[in-house]
Design a protein around this nucleic acid. Structure first.
Length: 640
DNA sequence: ATAGGGTTAG
């Protein structure tokens, strides 16, 4: 009888434990979990490390990010945690972005008498050291690993590679990989990803080429490396992309091609990187093909893919498709909205951008600093000064977003272009940042439009002090002087440039026809059909003159005779690209041009006439924004 | 258990 009762007791306990285990498995909210925890404490007074560990895992996985207090209290209630339990807690801290705690906990294991670290503990603590860039502890661990005999463990070795790479000990990272007996593909991929992350794209490519094999992750990593405008070496600036960055985006597309030749099937992540390369290059044709690929292969357009698609369309000048994609995407977060707002702003659709902003707020999303860059540049592009001030002030007072110098940049541009130069100057004085070159350039640009010599002088001095080697600054100044017919100053500037060995980056315009991109610089004669293009250009210029176009020779920077100035203007790269576009595309097709510098006044005027006379939409992305020319007018309403 | 993805002033 007594035995029976004991058995019954045991059975009851087993069944309760079983019940708790399954309740833990099913817990999907913290609320629910708390109830199970209470039930567990009440019904299972005895110690059961297995069940207790399950509870800890459940609590960890349901903990809010960065808050591990509850998990920690459970961890602390173990009387004798085993290695697995220690590791669980170390991993929890790592995932909660608290690597410091992971390291502390690891060293506590080492103080325990009855617990040994295993390969899990070691790779976890190495990852923590990596995030902390703690190469000192990392190196000590490396020595200990050898001593404890974990040398051949692939996971530990891979963690060592990551640790060294993140600590910028690239040689050591490479050495670990080279000395591995049987290096895992993952070990290569880790090093590859780290090279990419720190902007060592050449090292990454070299490693990629000599890897014994490459999987989808390897391809995605290297393609991402080339597609993303490296944040390490220069700030991301899709609209005034450097030549080097353009070559890198082209390389991303080449690698994408190679990947398909290697029979590796691209996934969502590949597509996102490739779309970003398309956006950088303005390669609309390629971007559309990728979109088709997504549709044909039934790849789900999730939030991130949707965001990158609509970003691609906006950056390639097809704002209608961008908005369409935005409306079709199944979920939108602050990225999706910010990208859309920025896209609309860049296309001069400021009112719509502001409408989107208020819809976003109505949906309960919290704007961030990037969102406000979109909102403020929307205001500055269309000259909405009062609105701009309102949004700028609301950043701190309503949304708790601290304005950065970029936001002041938008404001100063907005005020300057609206002619409120004094107000712009006051804002520079009152802001909590030292003004950068961008701000002075914005002021200088405004001085050019509004002919304010006094402020121009101050801006010039400051600009040349901050950026004495940037060719564009001299060009801008030279434009201002020639507009004012101060030829002596123009000559001085040219001498300064010569002495400092500064060369003007030539303006270039590119156009996509068929599957190829054609690039023109001013006076370009390199195209095989160059004769035909110039013939077309002559015809165009003649026709628009008959319709009232007068060359705006103030756009010519040099002190030439009138006729020479006109000739120089006539062969501007955007005009050549348009002449080619009119020849090479069917009547009625929109012409899309990408220019590396800002469009000049004369070209802007000429293109208005061309769009009218030839009944073509002409869309130009310059280094600042889009211009949509149609039936004789431009979407910027000549405000740029 | 280790690896890869979307925004950024002028």
């Amino acid at each position: 009888m007594r035995q029976y009762s004991k058995l019954l007791q045991q059975l009851t306990r087993k069944s309760i434990e079983h019940r708790i285990a399954s309740l833990l498995q099913d817990s999907s909210t913290q609320q629910h979990l708390l109830q199970v925890h209470a039930f567990y404490v009440k019904t299972c007074p005895g110690r059961n490390n297995f069940l207790h560990a399950k509870l800890l895992s459940a609590v960890v996985s349901l903990s809010p990010p960065n808050d591990l207090q509850y998990a920690r209290s459970i961890f602390d209630s173990f009387s004798m945690p085993d290695t697995f339990i220690w590791n669980t807690m170390i991993r929890a801290y790592l995932n909660a972005q608290k690597p410091r705690e992971s390291v502390t906990l690891y060293f506590q294991i080492r103080l325990q008498d009855n617990v040994l670290v295993d390969s899990f503990s070691l790779s976890l603590v190495l990852q923590a050291c990596a995030r902390l860039m703690d190469s000192e502890n990392g190196q000590k661990l490396h020595a200990l690993i050898a001593k404890l005999g974990f040398g051949p463990d692939v996971f530990v070795q891979t963690a060592l590679i990551e640790m060294y790479a993140k600590c910028h000990c690239l040689e050591d990272a490479g050495k670990v990989l080279d000395h591995m007996e049987k290096p895992d593909l993952v070990s290569y991929n880790v090093l590859l990803a780290e090279y990419v992350r720190i902007g060592e794209i050449e090292l990454a490519h070299e490693l990629f080429n000599r890897m014994p094999e490459r999987d989808l992750v390897s391809w995605n990593t290297i393609i991402h490396g080339y597609a993303s405008l490296s944040e390490v070496r220069s700030a991301p600036k899709p609209f005034n992309i450097t030549n080097e960055q353009r070559q890198q985006s082209n390389e991303a597309l080449r690698l994408f091609h190679r990947m398909q030749l290697a029979n590796v099937v691209p996934d969502k992540i590949t597509i996102i990187s490739v779309l970003s390369a398309c956006g950088n290059l303005g390669a609309l044709g390629m971007g559309r093909m990728i979109h088709e690929y997504v549709e044909i292969n039934g790849i789900e357009i999730d939030m991130k893919l949707g965001t990158s698609l609509l970003d691609m369309y906006a950056k390639c000048g097809d704002i209608d498709s961008s908005v369409k994609t935005f409306k079709n995407v199944n979920a939108r977060d602050i990225f999706t909205w910010s990208v859309m707002i920025m896209g609309l702003a860049n296309h001069g659709l400021g009112e719509l951008a502001l409408e989107y902003f208020s819809n976003m707020i109505a949906e309960g999303l919290k704007p961030n600093d990037v969102t406000f860059l979109g909102v403020l540049s929307a205001c500055s592009h269309i000259g909405l000064v009062e609105e701009g001030w309102k949004y700028f002030k609301s950043m701190t007072s309503v949304y708790g977003v601290a304005p950065k110098i970029e936001h002041y940049g938008c404001m100063i541009d907005m005020l300057g272009r609206a002619g409120l130069l004094q107000e712009a100057r006051e804002l520079i004085k009152s802001m909590p940042f030292a003004p950068d070159a961008v701000l002075w350039r914005a002021i200088l640009g405004a001085c050019r439009i509004h002919k304010n010599v006094e402020l121009a002088e101050e801006a010039t001095v400051n600009l040349l002090e901050l950026e004495p080697h940037v060719d564009g600054n001299y060009v801008l100044l030279s434009n201002i002087f020639s507009q004012a017919r101060k030829w002596d100053n123009v000559v001085d500037l040219r001498r300064m440039m010569r002495n400092a060995d500064i060369h003007k980056v030539p303006g270039s315009s590119s156009i996509e026809v068929g599957n190829a991109v054609y690039e023109f610089v001013a006076g370009d004669k390199s195209h095989p059909k160059s004769d035909k293009i110039y013939e077309m250009l002559d015809e165009i210029l003649h026709s628009i003159r008959c319709n009232g176009y007068e060359p705006l020779t103030t756009s010519a920077i040099q002190d030439f005779a009138e006729q020479e100035k006109q000739n120089a203007l006539a062969a501007h790269s955007e005009k050549l690209a348009i002449a080619f576009g009119l020849l090479a595309t069917a009547p009625g097709t929109p012409i899309r041009i990408f220019k590396n510098l800002r469009i000049c006044d004369d070209c802007h005027l000429a293109i208005k006439f061309i769009s009218n006379l030839y009944h073509r939409k002409i869309i130009i992305r310059d280094r600042n924004r889009f211009h949509h020319f149609e039936e004789g007018s431009c979407s910027c309403k000549d405000y740029w």
